[in-house]
């Protein structure tokens, strides 16, 4: 077995998604990188430790740190604090626009509108989720990317999301005088592919397919029509250096429990092994 084959077998889809997520924060300049939940947070952390050291990050509680904080119990690791960012100041940062967040909404539609509030009839929802949280403000004020661990038509809905929490590029929702020029939707990292909003009129476009995934498979799992990017390629596997950083940042392998059965990055590898 060659070394490259060995790496291919060892790499998980979660790790590939972390590397894909980290690309969202490349060339963003000096702003707050907020990766919410395990894979986005590891993506932001990887970005800061590799291509974008100028990013600001917090310890996910209240302090700005000069080095990303490892996930889970830290032993005697002490966060390297360089500043203070409690929620009151996070809101001030949001309104000023110097932030790029990646979150995992319950629903996403073709306009990039997102829902974290309630699924079904609003008056009597089938499923009450968290509430709109900060999505209306985040989506209006600063750059946003999304993370979807279960790419399917229940997430990528055919019509509008049931309760528009995060705003997007649906012109019908905007009246004269309502400024929406700061809306800035970047990447959607899913367990099948990476997408963006760079199609005509901000249409959702597949940018890269994860190894072993076809465009048709992604389209079948999406409730609205997708466009293939002209240079549609394969999402790159993590390098040995990136993997080493990910393992150091996530010593308890929390990334291993995000996706069902923690599949390998290369799907055929799993099928061959089975």
């Amino acid at each position: 077995m060659s070394e490259s084959t060995a790496i291919t077998h060892a790499v998980t889809l979660a790790e590939l998604m972390i590397v894909a997520a980290s690309e969202a924060w490349r060339d963003n300049g000096e702003l707050l990188a907020s990766g919410i939940t395990t894979i986005p947070r590891l993506g932001a952390s990887l970005a800061k430790l590799t291509h974008s050291p100028e990013l600001l990050m917090t310890d996910s509680e209240a302090y700005l740190v000069s080095e990303p904080v490892p996930l889970g119990p830290r032993g005697d690791y002490q966060p390297k604090i360089e500043g203070y960012l409690p929620f009151e100041r996070v809101f001030e940062c949001v309104w000023g626009g110097r932030r790029h967040a990646m979150i995992g909404p319950t629903q996403i539609d073709r306009w990039g509108q997102t829902n974290l509030s309630a699924v079904g009839d609003y008056a009597k929802p089938k499923s009450a989720v968290l509430g709109v949280r900060g999505l209306p403000g985040n989506s209006l004020c600063h750059a946003n990317s999304f993370f979807v661990p279960n790419h399917g038509p229940r997430v990528f809905v055919s019509g509008e999301v049931d309760m528009v929490s995060g705003v997007g590029y649906n012109p019908a929702r905007w009246q004269p005088g309502m400024r929406r020029d700061d809306i800035d939707l970047r990447l959607i990292v899913t367990d099948l592919c990476v997408m963006d909003f760079e199609g005509p009129g901000h249409a959702v476009r597949v940018r890269s397919l994860h190894p072993g995934v076809s465009f048709e498979q992604v389209q079948a799992a999406t409730g609205f029509p997708l466009i293939a990017a002209p240079n549609l390629g394969t999402t790159p596997l993590p390098s040995a250096e990136q993997l080493a950083i990910i393992r150091r940042l996530d010593p308890h392998n929390l990334r291993g429990s995000v996706l069902r059965d923690n599949p390998p990055a290369v799907r055929q590898a799993a099928e061959r092994a089975a």
Partner: peptide, 10 residues
């Protein structure tokens, strides 16, 4: 006044 909430179902 705030811009936040515009365009959303809030």
């Amino acid at each position: 006044p705030t811009r936040v909430g515009l365009g959303s179902d809030v």
